[in-house]
Structures are given as C-alpha cells and as structure tokens.
C-alpha cells in the first residue's frame, strides 16, 4: 500500500510551522525563560524531522521498529527484518541530539537563574533600559 502523500505533507508542514514558531519565540519574545522554552521546541522539531526522514513504508505489511525480535530461523528472520525495519541511524543520531539538547538546556537554565539574581529581571528589554 502506498503511503498517502497528503499525510506526509501535513506532517512535514506542521513540523516546519513548529520550526517557525520556535524561531519566533527565540527572536521576538522578551523573556529569557520563554526563549529557553522555544529552544527546546526547536530542537524537538529538528529531532522529529530526523526521525521522519528515517521512516519507511514497506511494500508489504507494516513497518517495524529497528529491533530484531525473532531469531529462530536466522536467514529468514533477518531478511524479513531488513525488509521491514525502519532506518536506525537517524534514531541513533536523534538519541545523541536529545541528550545534547538537554545538557544545553540545563546549563542555560542555571545561567538564567543567575541572571535573575544579578539583574532582578529576566526581561531582555528591561535590562537593556537599565544598562543605558
């Protein structure tokens, strides 16, 4: 069965729209916490996009997660596996990217708290007004 093109385009476009929303949050919202939230949305969207690139729609049957489940008859099961499993490489890359994104988020969160301790606000516009 063919994968309907309309579904693929809806998902891709919604991911792009999320990308745009996150970029708007990063560049236009004044609050640092909101910027941090937007960054998490941005990296999540990039990850979802990577997983979508690794997806497949096999000729017969449904796609399968990249885990070998049946090894009783090795040759047959590995053939079935290669024909049905989705691409594991983007998933591995995304796994790495999620951890990295989390690490950066953690650090920025600490810095935002420290920023509030020193400046008394997390609003970028107010600190700009103060420093002038």
């Amino acid at each position: 069965m063919e994968f309907p093109i309309i579904v693929a385009s809806v998902i891709v476009v919604s991911l792009y729209v999320n990308l745009g929303i996150a970029l708007y949050g990063i560049f236009a919202r004044p609050s640092l916490v909101k910027k941090l939230l937007a960054i998490t949305i941005l990296s999540d969207t990039a990850n979802a996009f990577a997983v979508l690139v690794g997806y497949r729609w096999p000729r017969t049957g449904t796609p399968q997660p990249p885990v070998l489940m049946n090894t009783t008859n090795y040759n047959e099961s590995i053939k079935y596996y290669v024909e049905h499993a989705v691409d594991p490489l983007p998933q591995a890359l995304v796994l790495t990217a999620i951890v990295i994104g989390l690490a950066v988020t953690l650090f920025i969160a600490f810095i935002i708290i420290q920023y509030y301790r020193l400046h008394g606000t997390v609003d970028v516009r107010k600190t700009k007004a103060l420093s002038r």
Binding site: I26, L36, I39, F49, V53, V104, I108
Partner: peptide
Amino acid sequence: IEATIKYSLIGATATTMFFLSIVFLYG
C-alpha cells in the same frame, strides 16, 4: 552572565540548525 546568556541562547539555535543540515545531508 549577560554575555553567557547571549552566547548560549544563540549558540544553541545555531547548533540545532547544524543538526538540521546533517539531517538534510543524510536524507
């Protein structure tokens, strides 16, 4: 601290974009 905020917020955005670029290349 203000410099770190600037550096890290935009840096995180830029590196996410680099990840997207790798996704396109792999795709």
